[in-house]
């Protein structure tokens, strides 16, 4: 990923900044400008909100065949996580062996290195999750 493209999403990736619809109150991640439920009524009312970072695993897999920038972590666990606010995201699960991971398991966000743009390039940081 190119540096400017990563940089402009730092707030989402470092701090789980999403949106909350001022009309219906639903949470979204990443940030959105339009609520898919309220449409026009939500425009201008999608407020930035920091998500708590705790949730549970909806589904997961252990990745054996990874893109080269991610292969140092092989085999690693990828999961869809539902945060307590009701929004879902995709993240790695770290600090536990793949055998320990279960659907429904409680997890919490942590700060890790995601990838780097080669040996000379910038380093990309962001959330991964670990057992709560």
């Amino acid at each position: 990923m190119n540096m400017p493209r990563f940089w402009r999403e730092i707030q989402g990736r470092y701090n789980l900044i999403g949106s909350r619809c001022g009309n219906c109150g639903d949470y979204f991640f990443p940030k959105r400008d339009i609520c898919p439920k309220c449409h026009r009524k939500s425009i201008g009312k999608m407020d930035a909100v920091k998500l708590g970072g705790s949730g549970k695993i909806v589904s997961y897999t252990v990745v054996h065949d990874a893109h080269p920038e991610y292969s140092d972590m092989k085999p690693y666990v990828m999961a869809i996580i539902e945060l307590d606010e009701g929004v879902r995201l995709t993240s790695q699960i770290v600090d536990c062996s793949p055998e320990e991971v279960r659907t429904g398991m409680r997890v919490r966000a942590t700060f890790r290195k995601l990838a780097e743009d080669g040996k000379e390039g910038v380093i990309f940081y962001g959330y991964k999750f670990r057992p709560e």
């Binding site: 140092d72 972590m73 770290v94 942590t110 700060f111 890790r112 290195k113 995601l114 380093i123 940081y125 991964k128």
Partner: peptide, 13 residues
């Protein structure tokens, strides 16, 4: 440190 940990991740945590 794990491959995804460095001084920056340790400092942040």
């Amino acid at each position: 440190p794990s491959p995804d940990e460095d001084v920056i991740t340790i400092a942040v945590e």
